[in-house]
């Protein structure tokens, strides 16, 4: 049971990272990146590639693997973050602010292009990114868990906390929130609104890339692994309330817990349970559990 809860929180914290990314882009631009899953997968492979290149360049034991892994995580976040800009320019900006949600289709398209390109580089196979602190299983009473689970849990919570703090305490966070609430008023403060929007996509994509490196040692990395993770992150954002960053984080943890607790009973049913839960929650609370209702003026 404890094991399931730890496992659930671990996965959940990754979903929360992705959900947070959705929250950032949605509040500032009213759009979402439906290719987030491919950013997660490709992020993991950028991490793998970084480890490979550095090992080849520096020799196997020049620096500790922990450092290599850390560099890989940073590289993935950076690479995906930078890739967030062409995504914004090609798939989002032509459609932002217009009715019809064409950006759903264009971002899915961007994702397929990205995935195809990645497939031609890395191929179909799954690969293992070693965990930075090895694969030993720790035991606490009945429960056993892996070091990587703790790494993910600690790192993800640290990042979520840092984001939460940054949104509340820093100038850039204040600007993001100002743009999210009222673009015109933000512009009247002298804030460059399009730049804030592009930054939101950069941050959201970086979070996805980082998530990829975090989960790669737990699940084996393949270019298809990201889709389901991102879908759960998307679910987390929506049932938590897309407009509320803390709601998104809570949604992530909730989905992680539901998933791992269902797995206690039957591993096959865990995704069915998760997505049934999503449908149920939205049928009851169309704006999510902690979301705000957007009222249309007539």
């Amino acid at each position: 049971m404890l094991q399931a809860i730890i496992g659930g929180l671990t996965l959940g914290s990754v979903y929360a990272l992705i959900a947070l990314g959705f929250n950032l882009t949605y509040t500032t631009t009213r759009t979402l990146n439906f290719a987030q899953g491919d950013f997660v997968s490709v992020g993991a492979f950028v991490g793998l590639g970084t480890v490979g290149v550095l090992t080849a360049a520096l020799g196997a034991d020049a620096v500790g693997y922990v450092w290599l892994y850390a560099l890989a995580a940073v590289a993935a976040a950076l690479a995906m973050g930078v890739l967030g800009l062409p995504l914004y320019l090609a798939a989002i900006r032509p459609f932002a602010g217009k009715p019809g949600m064409s950006w759903v289709v264009s971002t899915i398209g961007f994702g397929i292009v990205l995935q195809s390109a990645a497939l031609s580089v890395w191929g179909l196979g799954a690969r293992m990114l070693p965990a930075p602190f090895g694969d030993e299983v720790f035991r606490v009473g009945e429960a056993g868990f892996r070091s990587q689970e703790l790494v993910v849990l600690v790192l993800a919570f640290a990042i979520l906390g840092a984001f939460d703090l940054a949104m509340r305490r820093t100038a850039i966070g204040r600007c993001m929130r100002a743009v999210a609430l009222n673009r015109d008023a933000a512009a009247l403060m002298g804030i460059d609104v399009p730049r804030v929007m592009a930054m939101a996509f950069l941050a959201s994509s970086a979070l996805a890339g980082l998530s990829g490196v975090l989960v790669a040692p737990i699940l084996s990395a393949s270019l298809f692994m990201g889709v389901i993770i991102a879908l759960k992150g998307f679910s987390a954002a929506i049932i938590g309330g897309l407009t509320n960053p803390r709601g998104c984080m809570a949604g992530g943890l909730l989905i992680g817990l539901v998933e791992s607790l269902t797995a206690l009973w039957s591993a096959q049913w865990r995704e069915i349970m998760v997505f049934l839960l999503v449908i149920l929650v939205l049928a009851m609370a169309p704006n999510g559990l902690f979301g705000r209702k957007l009222v249309e003026k007539v």
């Binding site: 204040r174 600007c175 929130r177 100002a178 609430l181 009222n182 804030i191």
Partner: peptide
Amino acid sequence: QIFTDQTVHENLLLGGH
């Protein structure tokens, strides 16, 4: 059109952007 979800002080800080 003040930023209703931020504090009075934060609103003023935004004015100083």
